[in-house]
Simulated scan of single mutants.
Amino acid sequence: MNKAALILALVAAPALAEPDAHALERLVKQDCGSCHGLTLKGGLGPDIRAQALAHYEAAALQAVILDGVPGTPMPPWRPLLTDEEAAWIAEYLLDGDRE
């Protein structure tokens, strides 16, 4: 699935449906990884592995995902992700026990 198709699939998903874990994991690895490094160890953006994010609450990460960080390259994903999807991504990043 290409990037545009993945984003369209995420946007078209019914609001009440559970987040599509497989699609969101792919989004993290491909889209987040394009700035944060393919292993999420950092690149243009900082390290976003669990040990680097351990001092953050999930709600704070969710807000960064949805609203971006003004004055930095971190874009807002609110136009493309639901609150539930952003919460899933935040928990996924904080969990870190997936490799």
Rank of each mutant, 00 (worst) to 15 (best):
L94R: 02
H22R: 11
D95T: 12
A54T: 09
A17V: 08
A12S: 08
A15C: 13
R98G: 03
A23N: 05
A21I: 14
L38N: 12
K41I: 13
L16T: 15
D83M: 04
E84R: 10
D67E: 08
A9Q: 05
Y56K: 10
A17I: 11
A13F: 01
A12W: 15
C35F: 09
C35Y: 02
E57G: 07
D67F: 07
R49D: 02
L10W: 03
L38M: 11
S34C: 10
W88L: 06
R26L: 15
R78E: 01
L93V: 05
P14Q: 09
T82S: 04
A60T: 15
G37K: 05
D31V: 09
L27T: 00
L94F: 03
L94C: 04
R26V: 06
T72P: 07
A9H: 08
I7F: 09
G37E: 07
D47G: 08
L24P: 02
D97E: 15
P75G: 12
E85K: 11
G71P: 03
A9V: 02
G42Y: 12
A59P: 01
L24G: 04
V28M: 08
G43R: 04
E57V: 09
G96A: 04
G96N: 10
A13C: 14
I65E: 00
D47A: 07
G68S: 14
Q62V: 03
Q51H: 12
D83N: 15
A52W: 01
T39C: 08
A4D: 13
M1A: 08
L40K: 02
L8Q: 11
Y92H: 09
A63V: 07
D97P: 02
L61A: 14
E91C: 07
A63G: 13
P19L: 13
A59T: 12
L8S: 06
K41R: 10
W77S: 00
